[in-house]
C-alpha cells in the first residue's frame, strides 16, 4: 500500500509530466484557453492513461518485446476512440471545443511514455497508481493554466454554461493571454515557478533535456 501511494504521488510532484518531464505539451497549451475544456481534457487523459496502463500491465507477459509499440498504440487508440465517441454523444460543445485534440491523445507522449517506461514492467495495481498519479498531475497543471488564462483573459470562468466567477463587466482583459503567444509565455513562467518550488524543497531536479519521443524512437 505504501508503494501504491508513493507511486501515485510521484506523478504529482517530482515526476510531473508537464512541468518537470515536459512531455505532452501540445494539447496542454492548446486547450488551456477555457477552464471547461481543460477539465474534460484532464478527465479524458486520466481515463485513457489509467485504462491503457491497466490493460498493458495485465498483458505484459503476453506481449512480445519486438512488437510492443504497435500493440501499445492499438490499446491506447481503442480507449481514445471510446472517449472520442462518448464525448461526441454526450458533450457536443466540449467535443467541438477540443476538436482535433481528442484523436491526438493517441500520440500524446505522456501515455505512450508511461506505457513503455512503467506499465510494461510493473504489476497491475502499481500501473493503475501510476496512471492515476500521472493523469492527476497532468490535469492539475492544465487546469491551473486554464483557470489563470480564462480568468485574466476574459474576466470570468464559465463551466457548463454556468458562470462561476466573474469580474465586473467593465474589466477588459489583456487579449494576449488568450492568444497562442500568451500560452507559451505563461507556461514558461509556470515551469520556472515549478522549478523554484522544487529547488526550494531540496528535491532532486529531473533534467528536462531528455524527451519522450527520443526514448520511444530508440525502442522502436
Amino acid at each position: 500500500m505504501t508503494d501504491w501511494i508513493a507511486t501515485f504521488k510521484r506523478g504529482l510532484s517530482i515526476e510531473n509530466p508537464l512541468t518537470i518531464l515536459m512531455i505532452g505539451l501540445c494539447a496542454t497549451l492548446a486547450v488551456s484557453t477555457k477552464f471547461e475544456g481543460a477539465f474534460f481534457m484532464g478527465l479524458a487523459v486520466i481515463f485513457v492513461l489509467t485504462m491503457s496502463s491497466m490493460i498493458i500491465s495485465a498483458l505484459r507477459r503476453v506481449i512480445p518485446e519486438q512488437v510492443r509499440i504497435p500493440i501499445f498504440i492499438v490499446v491506447i487508440a481503442s480507449f481514445v476512440t471510446i472517449v472520442d465517441l462518448t464525448m461526441h454523444a454526450f458533450l457536443p460543445p466540449v467535443y467541438n471545443f477540443l476538436g482535433v485534440w481528442i484523436p491526438l491523445i493517441v500520440v500524446n507522449c505522456v501515455i505512450l511514455g508511461r506505457a513503455e517506461a512503467f506499465a510494461y514492467h510493473n504489476s497491475v495495481s502499481l500501473a493503475v497508481a501510476d496512471g492515476l498519479g500521472m493523469g492527476t498531475g497532468y490535469s492539475f497543471v492544465i487546469i491551473v493554466l486554464a483557470t489563470f488564462r480564462e480568468f485574466v483573459g476574459s474576466g470570468e470562468i464559465v463551466f457548463m454554461n454556468q458562470r462561476i466567477v466573474a469580474l465586473p463587466p467593465s474589466y477588459q482583459g489583456p487579449g494576449i493571454v488568450l492568444l497562442f503567444p500568451g500560452a507559451f509565455i505563461i507556461f514558461g513562467f509556470m515551469i520556472a515557478g515549478a522549478r523554484w518550488v522544487t529547488e526550494r524543497q531540496g528535491r532532486r531536479v529531473v533534467e528536462t533535456s531528455k524527451h519522450c519521443t527520443i526514448e520511444e524512437g530508440r525502442a522502436l
Binding site: 497562442f180 503567444p181 500568451g182 509565455i185 514558461g188 515551469i191 520556472a192 522549478r195 523554484w196 528536462t208
Partner: peptide
C-alpha cells in the same frame, strides 16, 4: 538563473509565435 533553459525557451517561442499571429 531560474529562467535558464526550458522556461526561457518557452518565452522565446511565445515571442516568435507573436510574429506568426
Amino acid at each position: 538563473k531560474i529562467m535558464r533553459g526550458a522556461p526561457m525557451a518557452f518565452v522565446t517561442a511565445g515571442l516568435l509565435s507573436l510574429g506568426y499571429v
